[in-house]
Nucleic acid binder design. Structure first.
Lengths: 185, 185
DNA sequence: CTTGTCTATGCAACGAGTTGCATAGCAGGA
DNA sequence: TCCTGCTATGCAACTCGTTGCATAGACAAG
């Protein structure tokens, strides 16, 4: 289980509420780890009970009050332990690949629109990542040595960019294959 | 849920037992969808109760008897329905990316061995995919038009190959970044 | 003043996935 | 003969993840 650890990393980068965390899981952290607000609130409660994180009630104006969480010493120790443990390389789950292999038992051409939809989605994500890279990792300080944290955030973002580029190229390959199959059923 | 549909595709490609399916989920199908034998037996039972698949007891010599499953008409219809429904683009879960972003709160250099281990694992997978491609998609018939099923299997395999190549290149990028951070803590 | 939207937190029920354990036939080697 | 390993199937308990629902304060638009 790494959701706890993803939350620890995010809270170490910047303390925040469950709501704020769930926003982050729609952006930056969410590029490589997804979670709904339900999961987050439940895990935050458990982490608080285990003493991994501290809570602080923060009254706000113009919006409901919030609980701001920050990492306590035991949480930091838990993260450290996990960082020194090996993790298994990810296991993949691609609905679309199942569909592509299943298409031969139905109508391959019917998949074309679906694949095009996925291609658009991945192109959007790529544009989004590239905009983030321009915003956060170029500019006046470009070329100058970044601090370690930013270097590591950047290399993760480069991974997301590489993933989207690869996926788009593959979906083009899939589309070409589906079109090639169409004339001769 | 697509495990049922992945099983339907696999059984349409070739009928087999739960045990055989669990082997396939360690190879071909497993390249883009993982499942343990527990999940498979449980889902097979449900699919049989729903009339999606038929069972046949097959006595064997030199090994225990088995139950061979094959797809029934309602199962085929269910697959067809699913193929015409949209699915969401996959959501990613990369423990390693969490670790990389968390490394700055511990010791970045300690991650180098872990990243190298992942790199070896992905290099092995790539070699395995390439061997499968040579075995199944080249040879005397190379260049000749393949049937649609094999074309689609091939394009999915090409996706796996592209994924592993991209991942290996990214892990090299990660390693270079970690080494660059080492001299100046 | 009602309706919609955004912030903010949470419960309950369910379904999916993991882990540990159990059984059993058959084969080959120490 | 016993032990290991492969084929083959399955239960029980647990954790993780998803979905639907509920509440509530504040603001803006109509």
């Amino acid at each position: 289980m790494a959701l706890e650890h993803a939350i620890l990393v995010s809270l170490l980068e910047k303390p925040g509420s469950g709501y704020e965390l769930s926003r982050r899981f729609e952006r930056s952290i969410g590029y490589f780890w997804t979670a709904t607000h339900q999961q987050i609130y439940r895990v935050l409660k458990r982490m608080e009970q285990d003493g991994w994180i501290d809570v602080r009630d923060v009254p706000q104006q113009g919006r409901p009050d919030k609980k701001e969480y920050s990492v306590a010493a035991p949480g930091r120790a838990a993260l450290s332990r996990w960082l020194h443990e090996p993790v298994e390389p990810e296991s993949v789950r691609h609905d679309l690949a199942v569909k592509i292999r299943g298409a031969v038992f139905d109508d391959p051409a019917a998949l074309i629109q679906e694949v095009e939809r996925h291609r658009r989605e991945h192109a959007d994500r790529l544009a989004h990542y590239l905009a983030g890279e321009r915003r956060d990792f170029t500019g006046p300080a470009a070329g100058a040595p970044l601090d370690a944290g930013r270097e590591l955030q950047h290399v993760v973002l480069r991974g997301g960019i590489a993933y989207e580029r690869m996926t788009i190229a593959w979906l083009d390959d899939v589309l070409a294959t589906l079109h090639r199959l169409r004339p001769a059923p």
